[in-house]
Amino acid sequence: MTVEKEPVIELKNVYKSFGQKYVLRGLDLTIYKGESVVLLGQSGMGKSVSVRLMLGLMDADSGSIKINGKEITNFSEEEFYENNRKIGMLFQNGALFDSMSVWENVAFSLLNIDKMNPEEARKIAIEKLEDVGLPAKVANMMPDELSGGMRKRVGLARAIADNPNIIFFDEPTTGLDPIMSDVINNLIVRCVKQLGATALTITHDINSARKIADRIVMLYDGKIIWSGKPEDLDNPKNEYVEHFVKGISL
């Protein structure tokens, strides 16, 4: 695949700590247009925090974070919300609006931002639900009537509903059975390949990583310590990555 080398997400020397505890110290990461990058790392390493920083939901202590060449820390409120219109995010725990039905969740930005008429928005929501392997009958259910895996998939449908061109997936296949995981992997690949979106996926699922990634990066001790292609995982030339892939504690 030929990747146009146009950086979409650029992090330089990013530091973030909570009180005494540092999480990121000198994180550098560049993701190019149309690229699907998988971020690996042990639990508590700061993967979700990194994504929250890229989304501007949290401020870094220092360093630069650019989306499409624009420094997000300098955004005004209007610019922030405008920028987010092209961004989709699947939260680790779904973060569904529990006062709204499933279809209203999925169609949230279609209804409230794009001001689409409800019938049309509902139709699109049901299509997106089918994309993530959920039958149309869940559309009218409330989030608390869903299983964990279903919630995750509704979150996924919501993240892609407005055809974003940058998508973040925080553990999209965690809690899903192998068959459903494969459906989701294919969906992510399709989003990137067909829609030309740029994707950053956090996962602990090595199979999923192999399937969806153009490039895999490993977060350790607040920095990216390894970057390679999926096939490099078999021979990463890095002891930590080798242990991580094989699931052996150091």
Partner: peptide
């Protein structure tokens, strides 16, 4: 509850203040 379950953050990523 919306805050601690990240629903407020979700609103922001959906471009809703």
């Amino acid at each position: 509850t919306m805050k601690v379950t990240e629903q407020i953050d979700a609103l922001k990523t959906l471009s809703m203040s």
